[in-house]
């Protein structure tokens, strides 16, 4: 969306990175995505999205420790930057404001956790 600069898919990826925290690498993210949404996705798509978000400045990455399960190859762990957080907040606030303006979906049915 224009306001936040990320699309729906990228937003989901960004959230998953936040959720997975220390385990936020491409393969885990794709697995989580599949289990959460039921859509299957290729590693390449995830990887491209992660690169794009890094390019926009919403993510940073670091190489982690090698592990046996990956044939000794290291993982690249992604984490959200401050501007990534701002983008997510902006997106959430925008959604909430729209939803609350819609009479049938009024506020008192939902509960949030504020940070």
């Amino acid at each position: 969306m224009k306001e936040t600069g990320i699309g729906e898919f990228e937003e989901v990826i960004l959230l998953l990175v936040g959720i997975l925290d220390q385990n936020a690498y491409a393969f885990r993210i794709s697995e989580e995505f599949e289990s959460q949404t039921g859509r299957s996705i290729s590693i390449g798509a995830v990887h491209s999205a992660l690169e794009r978000l890094s390019g926009k400045g919403f993510l940073t990455s670091e190489m982690g420790k090698p592990s046996a399960g990956r044939g000794g190859r290291r993982k690249r762990i992604y984490s959200i930057t401050a501007s990534g957080r701002r983008a997510l907040t902006a997106s959430r606030d925008f959604r909430i404001s729209l939803w609350s303006q819609f009479p049938d979906f009024s506020v008192d049915q939902l509960s949030f956790v504020f940070n």
Binding site: Y25, F27, I43, H47, E51, R70, G71, R73, R74, K75
Partner: peptide, 15 residues
């Protein structure tokens, strides 16, 4: 630049 971690992902998924 990307080779190592994508390869790792590929192998993990494969296994």
């Amino acid at each position: 630049d990307y080779r190592e971690d994508i390869e790792g992902d590929l192998i993990e998924r494969y296994l």
